[in-house]
Design a protein around this nucleic acid. Structure first.
Length: 270
DNA sequence: CGAGTTTGACCAGCGC
DNA sequence: GCGCTGGTCAAACTCG
């Protein structure tokens, strides 16, 4: 039986490997900009936000993405280092218009087949974007330099112009929790991810026939939120967006974690 | 009766 | 400035 401490240490190590949830204050680019460096031997189940809890709900396909990823990021763009990025030809009409690309995650043991999401940067993400460090601001705002005239879009942000970036920079910085979203093929809207959630709102968003639900972690002092909605183009797909980082371990993991698989991957929390 | 859900109101950001 | 939209609040309601 692995101790809680060692599990946390393993998790931290893996999060570092993955570049996940680092630099919540925007010190560094990886998280906010969605540049995750997946180790070559990464299996899909080792993603911190997709522990076994979330995989037991009977859905067959899971997908991941950073909600803070560049608006038109493709899989290859997400996985390669910054200097290699090129403007994506993809276009998004509005928030949460999603494109998918396919790739194989993981080499050994039959890596999971994943669909990486690419989400248009939302208003909330603009806030997060405003949280970036000076270096990143410099990099973002200097895109015009390398890409040409004023009308050129930032290579990361797709449709966001340099002028808009300046405006965004002028906006008072507001701390925003790191966000991740992933897509699952599921009949049920709310996936069992091991945490206890309380619904605090529901909203019908524009151009969608399915309402978006808002949940908050019920644990005291834990401010993690998640949004659940169905993909307009394919209602079978559930889009789950997590915002924030849990300050505790999964609720019902505490009850039966020792009776399950000894794998350290079974006890992720974030 | 407490915990969780529903739902209309409210607010802030953004585009025009 | 105004309208639209997404996100949140909170009172009412439901359920176990």
């Amino acid at each position: 039986m692995a101790s809680r401490t060692s599990q946390a240490a393993i998790l931290n190590q893996q999060q570092q490997q993955l570049g996940l949830f680092e630099n919540q204050e925007g010190e560094g680019c990886n998280t906010q900009m969605g540049f995750f460096h997946f180790p070559p031997n990464l299996t899909f189940s080792s993603l911190p936000f997709l522990g076994h809890q979330s995989l037991k709900g009977g859905f067959s396909t899971a997908s991941i993405a950073s909600d803070d990823a560049p608006s038109t990021t493709t899989l290859s763009e997400t996985l390669v280092p910054r200097p290699s990025l090129t403007p994506s030809p993809l276009r998004h009409k509005q928030d949460h218009n999603i494109t998918t690309t396919s790739s194989e995650f993981g080499g050994g043991g039959g890596g999971a087949h994943a669909h990486l999401l690419s989400l248009q940067r939302s208003t909330a993400n603009l806030w997060a974007w405003g949280d970036v460090s000076d270096d990143r601001d410099e990099y973002c705002l200097n895109s015009k330099r390398s890409s040409g005239g004023d009308d050129q879009h930032h290579p990361y942000l797709g449709g966001v112009s340099a002028m808009k970036m300046k405006k965004m920079k002028a906006i008072r910085r507001k701390v925003r929790e790191p966000r991740f979203c992933f897509k699952t093929l599921s009949d049920v809207d709310v996936l069992d991810d091991g945490y206890k959630w309380r619904k605090y709102g529901q909203k019908v968003v524009k151009n969608t026939q399915h309402p978006r639900s808002y949940y908050r972690c019920t644990m005291d002092n834990c401010r993690v939120k998640k949004r659940v909605e169905r993909l307009a183009e394919d209602p079978r797909m559930v889009i789950t967006t997590y915002e924030g980082r849990h300050v505790h371990s999964p609720s019902h993991d505490l009850e039966d974690q020792d009776s399950r698989s000894p794998s350290h991957l079974n006890n992720f929390f974030w």
